[in-house]
Design a protein around this nucleic acid. Structure first.
Lengths: 305, 305
DNA sequence: CTATCGCGTCCATTTACTTGACGCGATACT
DNA sequence: AGTATCGCGTCAAGTAAATGGACGCGATAG
């Protein structure tokens, strides 16, 4: 039941996947659902259903009074397999208005509540230009939505990587105005105007290049029982979790889990994990940052001489 | 250039979308890319490319030395349109190992770094049983991974909704053991064994049913300038944001943004927004919870008499 | 300067899919 | 009752999609 035939044409396979999908999420589907979703004739839909029945006959039965195919108790996904997370993400995207329900296979959207403060959707053109600049090592002029709302006149940046944390997208870039490396919020870049070959070397971004192991442990102020629970939840071994992490990104992870707050300030429930080597991390970050700035200054003076 | 012909067969349309996709993300693609991705012949791939050129000729040109179709400056997505977020989410999913790269259209995964502590992937069977129970108003017996690692013997719950917050999935349910409504972490439900018609009324879950407006403002301890910035970032009007929210979910939102911390405890940068009506919210939540418990008790005694 | 590779295009053939028509069982209408 | 309707399944004939095979072309590698 697990493997859903390899020798099917791509299109047919997608339609059998659709059947699998609807059986999974709704427990039922129609011949007309199938023909509507793929704009195929009823006859073809019938043929596809017959095919699906050949492969996974135990998964469904037709109910004449319901006028629909109903999932059986024995149902086991034959096509969508382990890709459930994908659809869960789609639900989140739909609720956030990043995706239209028509672009998914959902019929009735399950009763899902997504709770977040949201963010601006990403502008395709901006993303494209940024990706290009990263791939081709270009510097670009961007219109950056200053946090006060107005769009600042162009700043020049040379982006070299994209990062995602806590639902936000960041562009790791060299900044011409400041002559150092910084993070720009992707969704705040309003426009990308010009592009030229980049002049700086992204490997000088030590804060990005260098990684460090975050030494994460349950908050010792929690009860022993609760500490064990936290350890289990994060898959710790021997009560600690070593999470390798770029220095510049450690900031976001620390921020997300309140690892950047002095122990004792927050109630332990608000700070279930703590960062054992917090000082080491912040110092390494500051040091790398300083080294980058100096390296950039040296590179600039070498170029001008 | 915007609309990409409606009268194409579904399969062909997907392949033109693929061309659009690869042009967008990689700036280039091959005939062999196309035939490999969809398991079609080279001839058919050629035909598809010709079709794409007919619709959006300005988007690409063939480079003989590169042996590939290259995106032009004038490129404007003709098929993938505004659904960029979808692919950004796929990148996150890939990095989190929730999705395999083969299940997406990405060739070279863009240099994306996803920073999170991760979570267990969702078990399809568990999700299916839970969704069923929600849709058919059933109560189920679950094996819940106690936080200490061991799987607790079965508890009975009657789930009635799914919620997502800060990357985690919750199942809002009535709990038989406690005779009240609680949240269960979906990824900690290890097994779902039996199911029976539910005996309780989910509308008694007042903490879920009742909504409240979270009155969110920039932290007044920030500089005026920075406050304006925060206001802009969250799309506030007149310096405040009213976010309607189920009482039970307000907990997660407050937790995510440190709205549940007393003002003054954290540095303002760690608490850029504050909840003006925090007391109102916590009181309303406690009250609703109490009302639910009493209503459930009344219902139980009425049923036994 | 020949071997190789990827593209484009001609052809005949196979397969997928459509349009059209008909019967069957379950529900809804009068 | 009877009859209209709807969704399913299927047979048959026609069309569009896709394949396998063959050939020429330009660019690159040895």
């Amino acid at each position: 039941m697990e493997n859903g035939g390899e020798r099917l044409r791509w299109g047919v396979r997608r339609r059998l996947e659709f059947i699998d999908f609807r059986l999974f999420w709704d427990g039922r589907f129609n011949r007309s659902d199938l023909s509507a979703a793929f704009a195929i004739s009823a006859q073809q839909a019938s043929a596809d259903i017959a095919q699906y029945e050949k492969i996974a006959s135990a998964n469904l039965r037709y109910d004449r009074t319901e006028k629909a195919y109903i999932r059986t108790e024995a149902f086991a996904p034959a096509f969508i397999g382990e890709t459930i997370e994908r659809y869960l993400l789609q639900l989140v995207a739909i609720e956030n208005r990043w995706m239209r329900p028509e672009d998914t296979w959902f019929d009735a959207i399950p009763p899902v509540e997504v709770i977040t403060l949201g963010r601006r959707p990403t502008d395709p053109t901006v993303l494209l230009r940024v990706l290009d600049a990263i791939g081709k090592r270009q510097e670009i002029d961007i219109g950056y939505a200053s946090l006060t709302g107005s769009v600042q006149p162009s700043r020049t940046i040379a982006p070299h990587a994209l990062a995602h944390s806590a639902g936000r997208w960041y562009v790791r870039s060299w900044s011409k105005d400041h002559d150092d490396f910084r993070d720009y919020n992707l969704n705040r870049i309003a426009t990308v105007s010009d592009h030229r070959p980049a002049t700086i070397d992204p490997t000088l971004d030590f804060e990005w290049v260098h990684k460090i192991n975050l030494d994460i442990r349950p908050n010792p102020e929690l009860s022993t029982e609760r500490q064990a629970a936290v350890a289990a939840e994060h898959g710790m071994t021997d009560g600690r979790l070593l999470r390798p992490c770029r220095l510049s990104l450690s900031f976001y992870l620390m921020s997300e889990y309140n690892l950047d707050v002095e122990p004792g300030v927050l109630k332990p429930e608000k700070q279930q994990i703590v960062l054992e080597n917090r000082d080491e991390v912040t110092q390494a970050r500051a040091l790398s940052r300083q080294m980058s700035i100096e390296a950039l200054a040296r590179a600039a003076s070498a170029a001008s001489s």
